[in-house]
Write a protein that binds this DNA or RNA. Structure first.
Length: 438
RNA sequence: GUGAGCGUAGUUCAAUGGUAGAGCCCUGGAUUGUGGUUCCAGUUGUUGGGGGUUCGAGUCCCCUCGCUCACCCCA
């Protein structure tokens, strides 16, 4: 085992055939999001560190301890994006999308980076599929976004996911609640966990979803965020729920759900899955009506979500994976005195007609070539020997059935792309040992 | 950053402190142009790295690195 080079901690190599499943998942996202007229945006994976500090929030864990930050050659502080909403908002402002027809609907697919200790479902380089809707403050925008998310997950075959929804209200609601929560918890400060004591000052709302049993106990009888909502915030959330109900979408109101990023307002949501271990959040998202303004872009409301693609693939239903088994290629083998060059030429001819094939480029025994084709999972082999070269035909063997026939070279592509190709094959004599074993 | 468990061939795993092995995988072959089963042959290791104890260490001790899971937090 050579130890010279290893993956960077927390990164991983995605290999075939699994990469085909990733591509299929991404194709499904493009298809579903496209039906809602979302268009793809590609932002850089590096940004000025300040962008994330400003948008995600100084008191958050992401900024406080999880950013992959480094200095470039001129000493500027750059950060590998820990999430993409900030980048999208930045791009929105920087490219003058405020003057595009509103709302602007964008989706992205790509790697994100957080400097954390890796564990199940958590990597330093992970992948998100996300969507952002900018310029529509309507509660029905929240509803439609959730429906789109739901549709995507349904098309992947998910059935048992739990959608958690909550509201954190507008700025006024949050301030009022923050004061009331701090007032309630301060006398109990000493009973809180160390982390929560710190959060009492930096980000008290986060204490709400603390996993510590002690903290849970202290939260008994704590004021409810819903009681601090302004009438407008309450109205917004009521309408979101009414919309979801009207569309028959299943969800659960989880009033302790508080998301970790500072920019969230009003609706927040999370989708969790069993089977992911401790990191069970598959999707997170919410409304961020103040973010664009904070980045200097004016009062443009926004809402979006991010799907953890790595986690998604961990629990992807088999029903979906089965639909994307890649087609098996055909192998072309030169036989006897025929040069592998002829196999290459035939393969090229077929490829130009849309046939997926492998050319056997090394001269070896036919037995060996057949064995290799079989091990590559090939189902059809084309044999090109002296007889075939002279007659302008090719011997086609189906490895699954063991059936074999002779096909005119000109007809090959048509036969190979046909579903029941061997029905078309000139039945002729079957192979030397012709018997079918399967 | 904290804690626990684990590091032997590409892979899954063996080896009472006494010569580092097996299955799988991979490569070739079993006479003429036919795969899967079978048979034969072959390649692969500084036992993660360093130090210590010992006549002798894959095995015991220490350090270090890596992996995994959990905490924190999140996708």
């Amino acid at each position: 085992m050579s130890e010279s080079y290893r993956r960077v901690k927390g990164t991983r190599d995605l290999l075939p055939p699994e990469t085909a499943v990733w591509a299929a998942v991404e194709a499904t996202a493009r298809s579903v999001f496209g039906r809602y007229a979302y268009r793809e945006i590609r932002t850089p994976i590096i940004e000025h560190t300040e962008l994330f500090v400003r948008s995600v929030g100084e008191s958050t864990d992401i900024v406080g301890k999880e950013m992959y930050t480094f200095a470039d050659r001129k000493g500027r502080s750059l950060t590998l994006r820990p999430e993409s909403t900030a980048s999208v908002a930045r791009a929105f402002v920087e490219n003058g999308m405020t003057s595009w027809p509103q709302p602007v609907k964008l989706f992205y697919i790509g790697p994100q980076f957080r400097y954390e200790r890796p564990q199940k479902g958590r990597y330093r380089q992970f992948h998100q599929i996300g969507a952002e809707l900018l310029g529509d403050a309507s509660p029905l925008a929240d509803v439609e976004l959730l429906l789109m998310l739901n549709r995507f997950l349904q098309e992947l075959g998910f059935e048992d996911l739990v959608v958690l929804v909550n509201t954190v209200g507008d700025e006024a609601s949050r301030q009022a609640y923050r004061a009331s929560l701090v007032g309630f918890l301060t006398p109990r400060r000493d009973a809180l966990s160390e982390d929560s004591q710190r959060r009492l000052e930096s980000n008290p709302l986060r204490i709400l979803d603390s996993k510590s049993p002690g903290d849970r106990e202290q939260l008994e009888g704590a004021p409810e965020l819903h009681d601090s909502l302004t009438p407008e915030a309450r109205e917004h959330f009521d309408q979101v729920r009414a919309g979801l109900d009207a569309q028959g979408m299943a969800y659960r109101v989880e009033n302790r759900l508080v998301r970790g990023l500072d920019y969230y307002t009003h609706t927040v949501f999370e989708i969790v899955s069993e089977g992911l271990g401790a990191q069970d959040a598959l999707v997170g998202g919410g409304r961020y009506d103040g973010l664009v303004a904070a980045l200097g872009g004016g009062a443009v409301p926004g809402i979006g979500f991010a799907i953890g693609e790595d986690r998604l693939l961990d629990v992807l239903p088999e029903s979906f994976q089965r639909r994307f088994v890649p087609a098996s290629p055909t192998t072309v083998v030169a036989v006897g005195e025929v040069s592998p060059m002829a196999a290459l030429a035939l393969a090229e001819e077929l490829r130009s007609q849309g046939v997926e094939c492998i050319a056997e480029l090394t001269t070896r025994s036919l037995k060996s070539s057949m064995k290799r084709a079989d091990r590559h999972g090939v189902e059809r082999v084309l044999l090109l020997g002296e007889e075939e070269m002279e007659s302008g035909r090719v011997t086609l063997r189906d490895l699954r059935s063991g059936r074999q026939g002779v096909v005119l070279r000109d007809r090959l592509a048509a036969v190979l792309t046909s579903d029941d190709f061997y029905e078309i094959v000139n039945p002729g004599p079957s192979g030397p040992e012709g018997e079918e074993e399967r």
